[in-house]
Design a binder for these strands. Structure first.
Ligand code: FES
Ligand code: FES
Lengths: 155, 155
DNA sequence: GGATAGGGGACCATTCTGGTCCGGTAAATA
DNA sequence: TATTTACCGGACCAGAATGGTCCCCTATCC
């Protein structure tokens, strides 16, 4: 179905929650859990991951928690997926040489690279800041891409 | 990792192989297996799937096989993924209402729809015909999308 | 009728995913 | 210093998805 994993989704929801706070706000796992309704262990796990990916900074001990390391405007969705899912590679082949037996005699390889870059480009167009308020019109995506392509609506 | 499944990949490789033949050419599963080096059962399975998706037409009995139903130029990659993976919906939420508990109070939903459409748009830009010969320059993708976005290279 | 080839589906091993839990350590505070 | 708070690292597990095989049935050609 070409979908991102649930965990990744959670991670992004958490990030977005941070982005909605005043810059530099520190929140701990329990608070985040309450804010999002997600089970604490999951929240905790994801926050760790995000901290490891240099997206959040962690502060240990009492009064500790996490806070955003970068301005929401400076974080692209592509980066998020990169951190949470370990890159965007539609097929094994796109991840680099040596991943596919029949790299030779395969004429599909190069075009897929282009497709992959295209998708990646689309993901780079949206920033974390834009995920936080629906009113921020980033319809530039729609403009850039849907020149002629018919709706074919999200499925 | 945001990847399409291996089976889907196979399916597309098969399609591409058909597209490389003169229009209307009929090939059977065994021939395709030999041509691609993929195990026969797998090829067979995928060809069935593709036929079910109205992308290939099947011909039973001796001298039977499969042939493309539509001109390669008229088939977009988005359609392929649609047929092989059952749609493109980055998150459950994008697949429509009722898929996510917290549709209410979730501010991430609407922007994700945009992202999803953007990716979909990118996939609609490439046709099966372009998958067959690397020399067919469909760099329009690169032009359309990478206006400013830096390489960030396929990973 | 015999050979060929697709159609449908069951089936299985292995991996991936979503989610939990726990013992350790760093920091704040009293 | 003792206590409490909270992150850190990683083990762990049940269930689902994935990749792949097999088999019997039906249609077609010669
Ligand atoms: S290089 Fe892997 S399928 Fe073409
Ligand atoms: S609607 Fe599902 S996470 Fe927002």
């Amino acid at each position: 179905m070409l979908r991102i994993s649930k965990l990744t989704d959670y991670g992004i929801v958490l990030l977005a929650r941070f982005a909605a706070e005043p810059p530099g706000t520190t929140l701990n796992a329990r608070e985040m859990s309450e804010a999002t309704g997600l089970p604490l262990p999951v929240v905790s796990k994801m926050l760790k991951t995000l901290a490891g990916a240099e997206l959040l900074r962690s502060q240990r001990g009492a009064k500790g928690g996490y806070h955003l390391m970068r301005a929401p405007e400076a974080v692209t969705v592509a980066e998020l997926l990169d951190a949470l899912e370990g890159g965007v590679a539609l097929m094994d082949c796109t991840a680099g040489p040596g991943h596919c037996e029949q790299e030779q005699n395969c004429n599909v390889r190069e075009p897929w690279q282009r497709i992959n870059r295209a998708v990646l480009g689309a993901l780079e167009t949206v920033t974390l800041a834009e995920l936080v308020q629906p009113n921020t019109p980033s319809n530039l995506i729609d403009i850039q891409l849907r020149a002629d392509a018919p709706p074919s609506d999200a499925r």
